[in-house]
Amino acid sequence: MSVQDMIAPGFSDPVFQSQAAFRALLAALSEPGTLQRVTVAIAPPEGLATATATALLTLADYETPVWLPEALRNGPAGAWLRFHCGAALVDEPASAAFAVIDGAAGTPALSAFNPGNDQFPDRSTTVFVQCAALEGGAETTLSGPGIPGTRKVAPQGLRAGFWAEVRENGALYPLGVDLVLCHGDGMLGLPRTTRIEEAR
């Protein structure tokens, strides 16, 4: 068996590591645009950022179908998720509870994921957008619940038209997907309530 075929370990201390990671996620989504870090040291499988991998270990299980880009689904990341979370990996973006996308890739569009329905807006997909960096890019101004006044974020490596898609997603409120931008061990939440005031 080659090293590539081995499934990397998950949490070494699941109870406390998932608790710490969850609090970072809770802070990220309740205070959109603040940079949160997962402090857990895990070796993520190829194709997943530490933050993405930690978040999925914390939240995904047999109740939550996960959508991954095809290359990841058929690679070590897919095997890793199946083994540690027991999560079903689905082909159809709209049937996923959690999804991981590459921020620079053109597809799938955010509108391809499940926005929930008017009686159950909580059934929408949470999308982890892996991007090149969470700081140092073009500034975007956010407002909405969780933000006193406005807050500026500057992630890098997002496809052209990304902010327009986020705006369209926000217009569906109370429906819509919730986004978590991930890079390295950093996370930046963009729930559907967040309004894009100004994007450059």
Binding site: S18, L26, T58, R192
Partner: peptide, 28 residues
Amino acid sequence: NYAYLDEQTKRMIRRALLKAVAVPGYQV
């Protein structure tokens, strides 16, 4: 288990909490 609940229950509650925060005032 730590804090009484088993880990699967905590995950389920945590997922509900994240959606609750994303749709303020909606009962998940």
